[in-house]
Amino acid sequence: MPDDRTLGAPAQPGSGTPGAARVLVALYAVFALAAGARAGVQLATRFDEAPLAYLLSALAAAVYLVATLALACGPAGRRVALAAISVELVGVLVVGTLSLADPAAFPDETVWSGYGRGYLYLPLVLPVLGLLLLRGSRRAAGPTGR
């Protein structure tokens, strides 16, 4: 079994986040699978109904997958995880706002529609938790962030 540093945990033991890092990686993996499966079915069977929504769901799945893999790499994947999670947060905020401001532009839900209301708002909470975890792991790793 890999040690905690390979699962996105801080390099220093006793910081209290290895378990949180594992849970976060698991949540991102579940979201990658759920969003990817949903987008795959929608793109294959109903693409012409709401292409923008379905392509955004596929983008969300790709972002979740990249975040999952980067977080699982631990300190080595920190920068990629930070970028993926930042893109995710911007995506949730932009798509969430646009889907509420102009519902006609989104005839079907995306993962990020209404700030993730179809997924109990977890798409909005998940990047915040991810960024907090990455911030904590950087502090625990020391002033250089390595």
Rank of each mutant, 00 (worst) to 15 (best):
G16V: 13
T17P: 00
T17V: 15
P18C: 03
G19Y: 03
R22Y: 09
L24R: 03
V25A: 06
A29Q: 09
V30Y: 11
V30W: 07
V30M: 15
V30R: 09
F31K: 00
F31M: 08
A32G: 10
A37S: 14
R38I: 10
G40R: 04
G40A: 14
Q42A: 15
L43W: 03
L43F: 03
L43A: 07
E49A: 12
A50G: 08
A53E: 08
L55F: 10
S57W: 07
A58K: 06
A58W: 04
L59V: 08
A60Y: 01
A61Y: 01
Y64N: 00
L65Q: 11
V66P: 01
A67M: 02
T68I: 05
L69C: 14
L69S: 09
A70D: 02
L71R: 00
G74L: 02
G74N: 05
G77A: 05
V80R: 03
L82W: 15
I85S: 06
V92H: 00
G96L: 02
G96N: 01
L100Q: 06
L100A: 11
A101C: 15
D108F: 10
E109I: 08
T110F: 09
T110V: 15
S113G: 08
G116V: 01
L126F: 09
V128R: 13
V128S: 11
V128P: 13
L129E: 04
G130T: 08
